[in-house]
Simulated scan of single mutants.
Amino acid sequence: NINYWAPKFFKDTLLDGVTFYIKIEDSTGIAYMKLPPEWCRISNLENGVYRFRVDVSKLKQEQYDELPNELQQAFDKYHDNSISDDDQDWYDRKWYMVSDDGFAFTFDHNAISNGGVAISPFASVLADSLSLDAAKDNIDIKDKLDTIRIIHSKLPTDSNGAPTLDLKTARNFDDQMRSRLPDGVVSITSPSSLDNVPLKGSGNEGVYDTVNNGLEQLFYDLGISSSLFGGKTTSSNIVKESVKKDSNWIYTNLFPMLEAYYNFELSQVKTKSKIPWNLKFIRESNFTLKEDIANYKDQLSYGGSRLDYLASVGFTPDQIISQLTFEQQALDIDSIMVVKPTSNTISSKESSTGSGKTVVKSPNGNINNPNKGNVGRPETDNPTDDTDRLNDAA
């Protein structure tokens, strides 16, 4: 079920940096179990497919029943201390080399040289997102400072500066004032003088610029143009080129990995004809679909693949076989949908009698429907529904 699993493989690998799966197959179908990255390490690259090993010492007994049979056997062998030094399936007596049912995906091409550990190409986004959160917190602080107002209630004093109002009465006045103040207004009651000190503008004046710079850095690390999500732009072509760039990244990084894995699986299928089958993903994007289809269509004029063209317009292999065969052989749709005369379909050649009538000859001898089984454009410049058309073989 490629339509379901391939996007999942892609999403998980982008988030985790590296993903490890084991194929589980029975008579009802195929499923995949994803293993935690902390259990596994990439071991080697085989025909474009990453293989991995599992640290069996990290497996717990309570997880035993959920593990595939292969890992259950490895778990038993590890705890029975029956691993020999020359066992090719084990490394360092605790790392089990998973069979061909296990495979890994990663976009970090240095994973093998880094001991099998890989990180996401977008890991730097985490640091930038933290900086962006800090910048947004500064905005909240600035907004609070801009709206705070202080009301000072001064107590009367004598010539020596001592309060002439007892503290209990002063406290009652202060409580009454505080109970009636709106949010954002602070009351202060003291015998000392207090100058008016507005807090507006006391925060970071460039705090909004800091947030904008943080957003731009975030987009930069993602490899995405900020214009794609409503940033400042004066040209829609910037967005279009950014989408093409992202699509090309998928074509050159994701598709080769998926094709290598699925082609390995196809190589395990034995056919009667012994002809190997290969899978290829069409390089097209929903954002540039019209242009992509036009490219495959133009290639047909120079001997390009009709299969690629049909795939680009949405046909799957089973649809191509069943639907097109039914149309051409069962319905004989070419004889039903007769090509209408246009500058591209009419012919300059015509055969006429002395009476001015066009004589139509049916190469297949079918009087009732002379067009049945024929393809191509009409032989005459004035075709009718029963006019012969030029045969491809001719």
Rank of each mutant, 00 (worst) to 15 (best):
R51L: 08
V239S: 09
K8S: 04
S301T: 04
I333W: 05
R178F: 07
F173W: 06
S285A: 10
E46K: 13
I2V: 08
E241M: 09
L45C: 06
Y32K: 02
G231K: 04
N263K: 04
M177K: 09
Y78P: 02
P276S: 04
D166F: 05
K372M: 12
P341R: 03
R41H: 08
N81C: 09
T384R: 08
Q72F: 01
N3E: 15
W95S: 00
I367F: 15
D158C: 06
K272P: 03
D80N: 07
G230H: 02
S352N: 12
L390I: 12
V339D: 07
S159W: 05
S159Q: 14
K77V: 07
P363C: 07
A393D: 12
K200Y: 03
R41K: 13
F281Q: 12
S179G: 01
D385I: 03
F173G: 00
D143R: 05
R377L: 02
E46Q: 06
L254N: 02
Y261H: 11
V185I: 14
S301A: 14
Q268A: 05
T157I: 12
N278Q: 13
D85Y: 15
Y50A: 05
T325N: 12
F281I: 15
E291T: 10
D55W: 08
I250Y: 13
L126S: 14
V125C: 11
R149L: 02
P383G: 03
A31W: 10
P341E: 06
F105K: 03
L324Q: 11
D85S: 10
L167S: 15
Y302Q: 08
I141G: 00
K349C: 09
I151P: 03
T234M: 05
F326K: 13
E70V: 15
Q63C: 03
V56W: 00
A111N: 02
D308Q: 14
T325C: 10
K168M: 08
W5F: 14
S322V: 12
I42F: 01
G203Y: 01
L126Y: 14
A134E: 13
D381C: 05
T252C: 09
Y220W: 13
W39G: 01
D221K: 04
P363D: 06
I333M: 07
G116T: 06
L254H: 06
S343F: 04
N295K: 11
S187W: 00
S242I: 03
F9R: 02
K11T: 14
D92Q: 14
R306N: 15
A330Y: 10
S242K: 01
P341W: 01
F52E: 01
A135I: 01
I346P: 00
G161V: 03
R306Q: 13
T28A: 12
T233D: 11
G206A: 13
S187L: 01
Q88E: 15
G29T: 06
L67T: 02
A393I: 13
L130W: 12
D334S: 13
S193H: 10
A111R: 00
D221Y: 03
R53C: 11
K144V: 02
P68L: 06
Q319P: 00
L324Y: 07
S236N: 13
S355M: 12
R171Q: 15
L194W: 08
T189C: 07
K11M: 08
K361C: 04
G116L: 05
Q88A: 15
L300G: 01
A135P: 02
R171N: 10
S99P: 03
N278M: 10
P36H: 08
D388W: 05
S362K: 09
C40H: 02
S355N: 14
V360T: 06
A393Q: 10
K361L: 11
